[in-house]
């Protein structure tokens, strides 16, 4: 006889399989420890005793599944997360971007949009306003709605201001938002050149002709095969001479297209695609 824990493991596997077949979301390629942690959390807060019981409802009631989905995709982000990364973009990537008449940037797994808005602020300060378009995508449509509104919580402004300053920000962070009660509404000019759209890295196709692709703190949740798929997607999306930006604990070493990329400086996690295509 299996232990309770072992049965719990079986139930989780069955549920993920069911979700894939019914809704097309494939979480079987996600790192398991995090997913299980979040699923167990969801279960503990739900009225169900176990996943066998929950499954009957999850596979039939879309709103319940949507709630689970929101619970198991992690959308934690912040303005100028890892300030030194943004400093490196400002000092070592922007000079190249300035040589193009128009720049296209893809934020894959943008969550509530803070990374894209941070980039917009940086590009405006560096004189690239009106010369870029950003595509900010995520699997989770409810975070995209939130992202498109461009509204932050006032309580976070102190931390975000500190990040902004450390990232080499040239103005006062308060110039970029209007405070209304407990909300900070980002300036309209930051929002107007960002397109928020749903995109699932596990199944959807590449975005062509990008100068910069950012995918930070998304692939850490993926197993090797899905990671490979993403990297191929980004490689296919990037122009020669383009930049691939990963999270601070992610790297291209020993990974598929690494021979075509060079990190612009150690530890930046910004990889430049070579011009000579020898594939």
């Amino acid at each position: 006889m299996m232990t309770d824990d072992e049965i719990h493991d079986v139930e989780i596997r069955l549920l993920l399989e069911g979700i894939h077949q019914v809704y097309g979301y494939d979480f079987r390629d996600y790192a398991e420890a995090s997913i299980r942690r979040r699923l167990s959390h969801w279960l503990a807060e739900s009225p169900y005793a176990n996943f066998s019981e929950a499954q009957a409802h999850l596979l039939r009631e879309r709103p319940l599944f949507e709630a689970l989905l929101a619970g198991i995709t992690v959308n934690v982000t912040e303005m100028f997360r890892d300030p030194l990364f943004f400093k490196a973009v400002r000092e070592q990537v922007v000079p190249f971007l300035k040589t193009y008449p128009f720049v296209k940037i893809w934020h894959a797994g943008c969550a509530t949009g803070e990374e894209a808005y941070s980039m917009a602020i940086l590009l405006h300060e560096e004189g690239l306003a009106g010369r870029y378009r950003m595509y900010a995508t995520d699997i989770n449509e409810s975070v995209l709605q939130h992202a498109a509104e461009g509204v932050l919580s006032i309580g976070d402004m102190q931390r975000f201001t500190r990040n902004y300053q450390k990232s080499g920000g040239k103005r006062s962070f308060a110039d970029y938002y209007t405070a209304r009660y407990d909300r900070a509404i980002l300036a309209a000019e930051l929002r107007k050149d960002i397109v928020f759209a749903p995109h699932n890295l596990a199944v959807d196709a590449e975005f062509g002709e990008m100068h910069v692709v950012l995918c930070r703190n998304v692939m850490i949740y993926f197993k090797a095969a899905l990671k490979e798929r993403c990297l191929r997607l980004f490689d296919d999306s990037l122009l020669p001479g383009g930049f691939l930006c990963l999270g601070m604990k992610e790297n291209l070493e020993r990974r598929m297209p690494s021979e075509r990329y060079t990190e612009i400086a150690p530890g930046t996690r910004i990889y430049r695609k070579h011009y000579d295509r020898t594939a």
């Binding site: 790192a31 398991e32 420890a33 995090s34 942690r37 992690v74 934690v76 604990k249």
Partner: peptide, 21 residues
């Protein structure tokens, strides 16, 4: 565990990082 990340162990024994809350 690196600053600002959770450290986890996958069921197969590999290490994993997460940026969860």
């Amino acid at each position: 565990a690196p600053p600002n990340y959770h450290l986890l162990v996958e069921p197969d024994g590999h290490l994993a990082l997460s940026a969860d809350l």
